[in-house]
């Protein structure tokens, strides 16, 4: 049985109690997007894809009207912050044109290609990330305000830092999903928090960052807060360790400071490509 067939069987089984499957992807600006489908539509999603409007997504030329989401069956995960009665599963999805070809707007596919080319050049990269975000209160109507959740500063503890439980919930949810975190603490600015993600291969790390952003958004909401990742206040630190493909030789290490709000797939893809041309061998 293929992975897709296994998953089809799992989600359509009553015992599995799957209520929805979220097909998640990232738009050109790096924003996490998704479409939810009921389990009985999953098989159709695998064979025919789920239609989305191209115009609404990216700066597509007017000729491209429709794109289709195809689930990547290797990225199945349960969303632990969704209700216990009635699971929600998540899968990353690729964006394809009507004829089935991978769309040039699928930044995840672009990173996958870069990683493959990187390997072909005899290199392997391990990437760690540290992501900053700020938490703001909501008003009585539930809308975001510009009032930070707390007024703590770097590495503060309660009561200057009020985000300890929020950070804990985020890290525990991620751990349940198989994403290890290495450290978390209060950042320099009011309401700012920082979480370090365990090193992983570039595509996996990029996926983890997107999952992380989704988890942060969910936990913030559960706590009457809104999370902000904009680059004017926050940073994304990436540490890349490059070794030879046989892992025996250290080639280089680099550290980058970027905006957490950008498209992480595009960013890593460019980094890999430039490292590849500098250090790669044929």
């Amino acid at each position: 049985m293929t992975k897709a067939e296994e998953i089809i069987r799992f989600v359509t089984d009553q015992e599995s109690d799957v209520k929805f499957i979220r097909l998640a992807f990232t738009d050109a600006d790096g924003v996490v997007k998704n479409v939810s489908i009921p389990p009985k539509r999953f098989e159709a999603a695998v064979t025919d894809g789920i239609r989305v409007s191209a115009q609404a997504l990216a700066d597509c030329p007017p000729e491209t009207s429709e794109l289709f989401l195809y689930p990547d069956c290797d990225t199945l995960a349960t969303l632990p912050w969704r209700p216990s009665h009635g699971r929600v599963l998540r899968m990353f999805a690729s964006l394809r044109e009507e004829n089935g070809a991978v769309s040039e707007y699928d930044t995840r596919a672009i990173l996958a290609e870069s990683e493959e080319a990187f390997g072909a050049a005899g290199l392997v990269a391990s990437v760690a990330a540290e992501v900053e975000f700020r938490l703001f209160k909501t008003d009585s109507e539930g809308r975001a305000t510009d009032i930070p959740f707390d007024f703590g500063t770097y590495l503060d503890v309660y009561p200057d830092d009020l985000g300890e439980n929020v950070r804990r919930d985020i890290c525990l949810y991620l751990q349940t999903m198989g994403i290890e975190t290495e450290a978390s603490y209060h950042g320099e600015k009011a309401g700012q928090n920082s979480v370090r993600l365990h090193p992983a291969a570039p595509l996996a790390l990029a996926d983890n960052i997107q999952t992380f952003k989704t988890a942060v958004g969910a936990v913030a909401g559960q706590n009457g807060l809104v999370a902000d990742f904009s680059g004017s206040d926050n940073a994304l630190y990436l540490s890349l360790d490059v070794t030879s493909a046989d892992m025996l030789e250290e080639v280089t290490s680099a550290r980058y400071e970027e905006s957490p709000a950008g498209n992480i797939y595009t960013l890593l893809s460019k980094l890999l490509d430039s490292l590849s041309s500098r250090y790669g061998r044929e």
């Binding site: 909501t138 008003d139 009020l162 807060l225």
Partner: peptide
Amino acid sequence: LSAGEARRTLAVSEFDLIVISGPLPDE
């Protein structure tokens, strides 16, 4: 005074009993 404020309070403290008088302004 709102669900949001309640959630923020619960994020930081523990309680034995929560009494909600619905509807709240934000949900």
